[in-house]
Computed example of a mutant assay.
Amino acid sequence: MTIAVHSTAETDWAHWHTRCSARLLDPHHRPDPIARYPLGEAPEQLPDVPGTWWVVDGRVFIAAKPGDRLDHEGNRIAGIEILDPVEGGPGVLLRHDERALEIIRQDGQTVIRIYSPADEHTR
Rank of each mutant, 00 (worst) to 15 (best):
L46K: 04
R95I: 06
R23F: 02
T122G: 10
E102I: 02
M1T: 09
T8N: 10
G40M: 03
T110M: 11
D68Q: 11
I104H: 02
T18W: 05
V92N: 03
L94T: 07
W16S: 07
D107L: 09
E120A: 15
E87I: 04
G40K: 00
R99V: 01
R113S: 09
P66M: 10
R113E: 11
L83S: 05
K65Y: 01
I3S: 07
N75P: 00
R105T: 01
G40R: 08
R113M: 05
E44S: 13
D71E: 11
E81M: 11
G40V: 03
L46I: 06
Q109P: 00
Q45R: 14
I80P: 05
V60E: 03
H28Q: 13
A22D: 07
T52K: 06
W54H: 14
E44L: 06
I114Q: 03
L101I: 14
A9Y: 07
P43L: 03
P47Q: 09
T122C: 01
I62R: 08
V86A: 13
I80S: 02
P66S: 13
A118I: 04
N75L: 13
D57K: 15
V111C: 10
D97R: 15
N75K: 13
D71Y: 07
L83T: 08
D84G: 04
L94R: 07
P31K: 10
E44R: 13
H121E: 10
V86H: 11
E41Y: 00
V5E: 05
R105I: 00
A118F: 12
R105F: 00
I3W: 13
H72D: 02
D84Y: 01
T18C: 06
R76N: 14
P117Y: 11
G51Q: 09
P31F: 09
S21D: 07
H96M: 07
P38M: 14
Y115W: 08
V86D: 11
S7R: 15
D57I: 05
V111K: 05
K65G: 01
H96Y: 12
Y115R: 05
E10G: 09
D71I: 00
H6W: 05
P33Q: 13
G91P: 07
A64W: 04
L25S: 14
E44P: 00
T110N: 11
G108T: 12
G51D: 09
L70Y: 03
A35N: 08
E87T: 01
H72M: 02
L93K: 08
A4Q: 10
R69P: 00
H121I: 05
